[in-house]
């Protein structure tokens, strides 16, 4: 009943590998000028942070009372000096290390913990979901700034405690996003199709849930990096995070606050860096979000 066509297969089949998921994401990302610019800024800051010892023109810790609060453009101190006469440029460069550490680490740890808990809650459903989500809601009830400050205050000042409290602040929103996306994916036809073709719960989570869920969570987490940097700066500003004389941007903003009437431009520099870095992370996260939307 079906017509048999004289089918001859070509001797060498034309085998053209279509691009993978990530390379197509990358291709779309490359066309997005804002995202590329944001990524360039992030990479530049990361590079400077890594190479701080070689890039910085002076010792960020050595000050001199005689050359305090020099304005931007002073010979030998392109970005001026701070209230103790330390070279601002070198301090900003070294500060990138601290600020990136404070911005990225809590988000990364929270990403791992939050995704695991959220995916478990979303996939298991029922009572497990209730237990996880309601516990998360307890933390969610506090404004994030307040929670970070309260936790840091309770745990005591210091870098480790600041990182810990920031991590705790970021777990709940990531759990929520992970749970929401997982619940959505769990109800999709392809999960039922996988079940119908004999996949166990573990295979379904590993292949279908992770594959579809990690992307959106990752995008969300990227956006949190800027929040984390700002919160970390806030903690340092309050004396709960990095301690002097370390050159962390938030801390620098705090100590330079007194000089704002003497030399406002220099005093604003750490704030400018926080602003630029966090906006770069935000714009990059936006670009990534639209690039990862496969169906466009």
């Amino acid at each position: 009943m079906v017509m048999q066509l004289p089918l001859t297969r070509p001797a060498a089949p034309v085998f053209e590998r279509s691009e993978g998921y990530w390379s197509s994401v990358f291709r779309r990302l490359r066309r997005d000028r804002v995202a590329v610019a944001a990524l360039a800024v992030i990479l530049a800051i990361v590079a400077v942070a890594l190479l701080a010892d070689y890039v910085a023109p002076a010792d960020p810790y050595r000050g001199a009372t005689l050359r305090r609060l020099r304005p931007i453009g002073t010979a030998g101190f392109p970005l001026g000096t701070d209230e103790l006469g330390r070279d601002m440029l070198s301090r900003l460069i070294h500060g990138a290390r601290w600020s990136l550490l404070m911005g990225v680490t809590p988000v990364l740890v929270a990403f791992v913990l939050g995704s695991a808990a959220g995916i478990l809650a979303g996939f298991a459903g029922g009572r497990i979901n209730t237990v996880i989500m309601r516990s998360v809601d307890v933390l969610y009830a506090f404004p994030s700034v307040l929670l970070a400050v309260a936790l840091s205050g309770a745990l005591g000042a210091g870098l480790g405690n600041a990182l810990l409290s920031l991590t705790i602040v970021f777990v709940p929103p990531i759990v929520r996003v992970a749970e929401a996306v997982t619940t959505q994916v769990r109800g999709r036809d392809y999960v039922e199709a996988a079940r119908a073709s004999g996949a166990g719960a573990f295979t379904i989570v590993r292949v279908h849930v992770l594959g579809n869920v990690l992307g959106p969570i990752f995008v969300y987490a990227t956006g949190l990096v800027s929040v984390s940097m700002i919160l970390a700066s806030g903690l340092s500003f309050l004396g709960l995070g990095v301690r002097p004389p370390e050159p962390e941007w938030g801390l620098m903003l705090n100590t330079l606050r007194t000089a704002i009437y003497v030399n406002p431009w220099v005093a604003a520099l750490p704030g400018v860096m926080i602003f630029v870095t966090s906006i770069a992370f935000n714009l990059f996260s936006d670009g990534l979000r639209s690039a990862m939307d496969v169906k466009r």
């Binding site: 279509s18 199709a193 004999g198 292949v207 594959g211």
Partner: peptide, 30 residues
């Protein structure tokens, strides 16, 4: 039993195929 004795095809193939894997990967996985 599922997949080997009995297999199923669905109403909406665009929803029943996982969007983040190639078709080859999905069949190979099964």
């Amino acid at each position: 039993f599922r997949g080997r004795t009995a297999a199923m095809i669905f109403q909406e193939p665009s929803l029943a195929l996982d969007p983040v894997y190639t078709l080859g990967q999905q069949i190979a996985e099964a």
